[in-house]
């Protein structure tokens, strides 16, 4: 079985030279993931594994750093650094107050 992330050699459309300047929230997510790695909270392979588990439509539905956010949360929960309950409550609070 070929898994969705393992896409080398499949047919594809033209490569369009798209790029954007990274937004602040994306840079923060990038920096968080580097610090988490440096502090051995979880390892890079766990991180990649979590992204791979997002499955086939993740590349269409989520942006690059949205996939990273998912993987960071997944691995922090798995490692017991945060709980599902904590994350849910905090997200509600963040949304209510509009904090970024």
């Amino acid at each position: 079985m070929r898994r969705a992330h393992d896409m080398g050699g499949l047919p594809g459309g033209p490569v369009t030279p798209e790029e954007h300047d990274y937004a602040l929230w994306e840079k923060r997510v990038d920096a968080m993931s580097v610090l988490i790695g440096n502090k051995n909270i979880f390892n890079l392979d766990e991180f990649r594994h979590a992204i791979e588990l997002l499955g086939a439509d993740a590349h269409e539905k989520l942006s690059y750093y949205e996939r990273w956010v998912y993987a960071i949360a997944h691995n922090l929960i798995q490692r017991g650094v945060i709980t599902v309950d904590e994350l849910g409550r905090r997200m509600t609070e963040v949304e209510k107050t509009g904090r970024t």
Binding site: H20, D21, Y22, A23, L24, W25, R28, V29, M32, I36, L62, S63, Y65, E66, V69, Y70, I72, A73, L76, V81, I82, E86, L87, R90, M91, E93, V94, E95, G98, R99, T100
Partner: peptide, 23 residues
């Protein structure tokens, strides 16, 4: 600059903020 969408942060941006605060 891709819109930062800070006005209406998406689901994963909210999650990113929550994670940063918790960590």
């Amino acid at each position: 600059l891709r819109p930062d969408r800070d006005e209406h942060p998406g689901y994963y941006q909210v999650m990113a903020t929550a994670l940063r605060e918790l960590l």
